[in-house]
C-alpha cells in the first residue's frame, strides 16, 4: 500500500479521453517518475491529484484519505505540494516573503486572523524561511522582487516554497524545463539531497531523461491517457514497448 493510490482514474474533456484508466501506486519516500509523449495526460493526472480537476471516474487516496472533492488548500494541508510547469510564485512580493507565506500556511493552517502582530516578530518563521533559502542558495536574493528573477531562479524559489512546508508528497511538473544544463544539475543535486533525507515522497513529470534516470526509483510510462508500463529505471530503458512509444530508436 503506497502513500498515494490512484485507482481507475479517468477524465474526459468533451470528445477527448485525456485519462483512460490510470492506476498508480507511489510508495512512501520514493521518487516516482511519470514520463510519456506530449498529450499523454501527465499534467491532467497531476491536476487531478491537487484538486484542480475532478476525475470522472476512479479514486485518489492519499495517506489513507480520499483527495477527491476537497478544495486545493485542503489537499495542500493534507501534505501535497506542487511545483508547476510555469513557476507559480507571488510575483509582487519579495523572495523572502514568498518563502514566509508557505511557512505561515504550515504553522497556522488555511486561515488565521493575525492582523495585529508584526511580521518581524515571527522569529520562528523568519528562521525557517532563512534556512530554506540558504538550502537553495538564494539567501542573497532575499529582498529581490520575485517577478524580476530569472526563470531558473523562479523555479528554485517555487521549489523552496514547496519544500518549506515539509510536504509528505511533492509533485514536480517538469521542474527543469527550459533550464540551462548547470541549473538542471543543481536542481538534481538539490532533489537528491532532499531525497536522501528520506522524509519526502516525490512524483515527477519530466521530459529530460537525464533527470528522470538520476532521480527515479520507479517509472510509469503514460501514453494516450493509459499507463503503458511501470517498472524500475533499468528495465524501462530496455523495454521494447517504451522505446517504440516514447523513447524512439535513439540511444539513451
Amino acid at each position: 500500500m503506497g502513500i498515494l493510490e490512484v485507482k481507475n482514474v479517468g477524465k474526459r474533456f468533451g470528445g477527448l479521453q485525456a485519462l483512460g484508466d490510470v492506476n498508480l501506486s507511489v510508495k512512501e519516500n520514493t521518487c516516482h517518475a511519470i514520463i510519456g509523449p506530449n498529450g499523454a495526460g501527465k499534467s491532467t493526472l497531476l491536476n487531478c491529484l491537487i484538486g484542480k480537476l475532478i476525475p470522472d471516474t476512479g479514486s485518489v487516496m492519499f495517506d489513507g484519505q480520499s483527495v477527491l472533492g476537497r478544495k486545493p488548500h485542503e489537499i495542500n494541508q493534507m501534505g501535497i505540494s506542487r511545483v508547476f510547469q510555469t513557476p507559480e510564485i507571488f510575483g509582487d512580493l519579495s523572495v523572502f516573503e514568498n518563502v514566509m507565506i508557505p511557512c505561515f500556511a504550515k504553522r497556522d493552517g488555511s486561515f488565521r486572523m493575525h492582523a495585529y502582530e508584526s511580521c518581524d516578530a515571527e522569529t520562528d518563521i523568519i528562521a525557517k524561511a532563512e534556512a530554506m533559502l540558504d538550502e537553495v542558495n538564494m539567501l542573497e536574493k532575499r529582498n529581490v522582487v520575485a517577478s524580476s528573477l530569472s526563470r531558473g531562479d523562479k523555479r528554485r524559489l517555487e521549489m523552496a516554497m514547496c519544500l518549506s512546508q515539509k510536504p509528505k508528497l511533492l509533485l514536480l511538473d517538469e521542474p527543469t524545463a527550459g533550464m540551462a544544463r548547470a541549473d538542471t544539475n543543481n536542481t538534481i543535486d538539490l532533489l537528491k539531497t532532499i531525497k536522501a533525507k528520506g522524509e519526502l515522497t516525490m512524483c515527477i513529470i519530466e521530459h529530460d531523461m537525464h533527470v528522470v534516470f538520476s532521480l527515479a526509483d520507479r517509472i510509469t510510462v503514460l501514453a494516450q491517457g493509459t499507463p503503458l508500463v511501470e517498472d524500475t529505471p533499468e528495465n524501462i530503458k530496455g523495454h521494447p514497448k517504451v522505446r517504440e512509444a516514447y523513447l524512439g530508436e535513439a540511444e539513451v
Binding site: K71, Q77, S81, E88, L93, I101, S110
Partner: peptide, 12 residues
C-alpha cells in the same frame, strides 16, 4: 499577487 498559488499553498 497570485491567488492560485495561494490556494495551492494551503491558504484559503
Amino acid at each position: 499577487s497570485n491567488q492560485q498559488r495561494m490556494n495551492y499553498t494551503g491558504l484559503n
